[in-house]
Nucleic acid binder design. Structure first.
Lengths: 195, 195
DNA sequence: GGCTCTCTAGAGGTCGGACTCTAGAAGGCA
DNA sequence: TGCCTTCTAGAGTCCGACCTCTAGAGAGCC
């Protein structure tokens, strides 16, 4: 009988909680079994191995994040950059566990061991994301005269840096951080450049 | 007979290399034994356990980094902030393995399990570093009117974000990055603020 | 040469985590 | 009611990592 006593997302939630309490290697099958109060049979019925579980944790987090940001790319370049920075901050505040997953970085999730379908799903989303970013960079080059490396620092890396300080320490993200990020992005994108 | 066939720093170098190839949990005693071509007896003669080895790897990296930056705090605030940003970039280029150690973050090195003397050494250096940062923040508040959170983002987190993109991907840090970081810091610290 | 003391080599003990396997619980359907 | 099919429980195997322990190598000193 298809009973489905346990919810798959509850297992992923437990894994994300373990990660928040340590590193990605804190996500062990034994740990998930304890944290989610589930048997090993239930875990292995859903995920063929630990790598597939890690892949599911990562893909769920990154797809949720991207889905919230995609609509913001439609705006005019500088406005889009500011909106992306602000929304990055607020998304991290609203989804601290998934934010910790992204902060940890793909490399810790052993993507080389993932099953093919997890890898394909990730690459499909990554390609779509990269395409959005490339279009935005092109627009910002025309609007501000900055080079690619400079734009990526201001638009992508700076909001990441803003939230990292608080997420990695387990502290709440200050309410003023959106304004701080916006000011920094605007200043770095629009200030006069010295000769 | 005090023979000292193996150098302790060679063991730490091997550990840093293992970290660069993966996460901090890639630093296993078995891995160090292989990577440094050393017996387990030699490792445990120097370090009572794995936590002490991790502590030595972390402390060596962070102390080397801080030692290079301390002299730069003596300058006038905005100039000091710019110099710190530039030197952070160049230090990471010159010491990629240690830069990867710092990038990984203290939390991955299980500081709770460290022996007391490693913990004391870390806290002493951290206190000295915090004191320098606090003085700089005070100076920058007076010079620019920014709040603490905004200054920390611009001065501390932004240079970190600039190098992270390249270090985590294992790519070389571009020669232009110092200039990019300097422009971003100056712009964010000195631009007019909207009401 | 003998003695000491530091350091090394490497065999094993122990433990925890990944994964397998089998018995069975329980809804839907004839 | 009895069968099928999905899902669960949990015991058990295997493997790798941390750490211990002992025998001994080799410089310095008498």
């Amino acid at each position: 009988m298809p009973r489905l006593v346990h919810d798959t997302s509850a297992i992923l939630d437990a894994a994300a909680r373990l990660l928040a309490a340590g590193s990605a290697d804190a996500i062990t099958i034994a740990g998930v079994i304890r944290e989610a109060a589930v048997s090993s049979g239930s875990v292995y019925h859903r995920f063929p191995n630990r790598a597939a579980l890690l892949a599911a944790v990562w893909n769920r987090a990154v797809q949720g994040f991207h889905a919230e940001l995609y609509p913001l790319f439609d705006d005019e370049p500088v406005a889009a950059a500011v909106a992306l920075g602000r929304r990055t901050v607020s998304w991290c505040r609203d989804h601290p566990a998934d934010a910790r997953v992204l902060l940890t970085g793909l490399g810790s999730f052993e993507p080389a061991a993932w099953p093919a379908e997890s890898r394909d799903a990730r690459e499909a989303d990554q390609a779509r994301w990269d395409q959005h970013i490339r279009r935005l960079v092109t627009g910002l080059k025309a609007a501000t005269g900055r080079a690619t490396a400079e734009i990526l620092l201001i638009v992508v890396d700076l909001p990441y840096a803003a939230v990292r300080r608080y997420l990695s320490a387990g502290r709440d993200i200050p309410a003023a951080l959106e304004d701080i990020v916006e000011r920094a992005i605007r200043a770095a994108l629009t200030a006069d450049r010295r000769p």
